[in-house]
Every structure is written in structure tokens, then in C-alpha cells.
Design a protein around this nucleic acid. Structure first.
Lengths: 107, 107
DNA sequence: TCCTTATATGAACACATTAGCATATATTGA
DNA sequence: TCAATATATGCTAATGTGTTCATATAAGGA
């Protein structure tokens, strides 16, 4: 019975799709710049320029990282004129981020 | 007053030490091989060889990744003869891993 | 339409990461 | 001491990642 070991509860390994999503998401959280952006967005919706000025990161860097986070559906945006307001888009991941920050602070 | 903005609660950014720990830890979780190893160790203590055979990963790769996880104090080991038994060493991080896996499964 | 502001994109570079091979080390038992 | 087993380490090639500069696009107002 081919693939049996991948279909029952005895297998101690993760299926490849779950593994991919989990590693991708943690990878997104594994960069200081992205963490700072997400941490800021956890507090308030921000335009790209607000992020640039608050965190003192170059505009193109912020834009690249926002695209990265957008692709993973970790952030979303709404337009108002020429301004784009970004906000977080995954409550659960934001909660995990907060937990890790708290864990790091108290360790 | 130099550095004032880094010492009060108004600052929306994270301090650099917290940022470093958080990003390092998430980076550790951002690799499929390390996730598989940690997931296995979340279920039971394992020797290096058990990890190698259960997950079908080369011995040197497992050993390298275990050292990586050990440096971050995410795993620990005990010796029994020539065999080293590894287990997880950070309940909170393991809980975060479990949460992310559950999140990925149900999405 | 033209200018200005806001944001996105593409290319290139420096740097980090990962896996694999070969080999080293360490422990046990004969 | 020597062999066998278990694990760690050094090096390297391939690949991936993050930032920057320069430039493009898009929307609004004059």
C-alpha cells in the first residue's frame, strides 16, 4: 500500500504542504525589518511613508518587504488617493508574533 | 535628552536586543528541516540516528541543524554511552510551533 | 496636459544559508 | 590497544536573501 505511512496518524512527520506554509510564515517573521513593520502595523494602520519615517528605513526597502508580506497575506492595504494604508491581515500570525516578543522580553 | 525616544512607552519600535532574539528564533523555525526535527522532538526524545532514520535526512545535516538549535537553546541532549538523546528545551517556542502548524493545517 | 507626490519595480551586489562529502572525535567493548 | 559505532566538524558549492540605486507607474491637482 504505497504512501500508507503518509495517511495515518502514526507518521511523525508533517505533510509537505503544511511544512511549506509553516516554514514560509516563520521565514517571513525571521527578518528584523519585517518584524519591525509588522509590530508597527499591530499598533496602527500606516501609510508606506509613515512606516518609512517611523522606522527610518528606505522607501524601496519598505515597499519590497510589504510586497513580501502581502504575498503571504500577512498584510493588506486600502487606497486613499495616492496614499496606500497598510494593515495586518492575519490575526493568528500577529498573535504568534506578539507571543514571541513577550517571550523574548521576559527571558 | 539623548535616546529619550528609546526609553518611553510612546516609541512604537522594538529595542534591538528583543528584535535580535525574536528574529533569530523565528529564523530557526523558518527552515523545513529544522521544523521537521523540532516537530519530531515535540513528540519524543530521539537519538541523532533515530532522527536520521525517521526523517530520512543525512547524518551530517541533522547534526549541523541540531547544533544550530542547541546554540539557540531550543534543544538539549543527554548522553547514554555513545548515543546522544536530544529533546526540546523551550516549551514556549514549541507551543508557538504547534500553534503555527495547527494554523497551517486549518487554513 | 504637466507637475508633484506616493508607491512600486527591476537589476545588481553583498552576504547568509543549506546540504553534502570527507574526515575527525568520542565512547564502548573485545 | 584496536575496531566498531555514534556523532560532530571543516570545507565547499549552490542557492537564497536583503538592501540599494535608479527608474517606472499611478493618482490628484493646477
Amino acid at each position: 500500500m504505497d504512501g500508507f505511512e503518509y495517511e495515518n496518524g502514526l507518521n511523525q512527520d508533517l505533510d509537505s504542504e503544511t511544512l511549506f506554509i509553516v516554514s514560509q510564515t516563520f521565514k517571513a517573521l525571521g527578518d528584523p525589518t519585517r518584524i519591525r513593520i509588522l509590530n508597527l502595523l499591530s499598533k496602527k494602520e500606516c501609510s508606506v511613508n509613515e512606516i518609512v519615517e517611523t522606522l527610518d528605513i528606505r522607501q524601496s526597502t519598505v515597499s519590497h518587504q510589504l510586497r513580501f508580506l502581502k504575498n503571504l497575506r500577512l498584510v493588506k492595504y486600502r487606497r486613499e488617493g495616492t496614499t496606500l494604508y497598510y494593515s495586518h491581515d492575519d490575526e493568528h500570525v500577529m498573535l504568534i508574533l506578539k507571543q514571541m516578543i513577550d517571550h523574548a522580553c521576559h527571558s
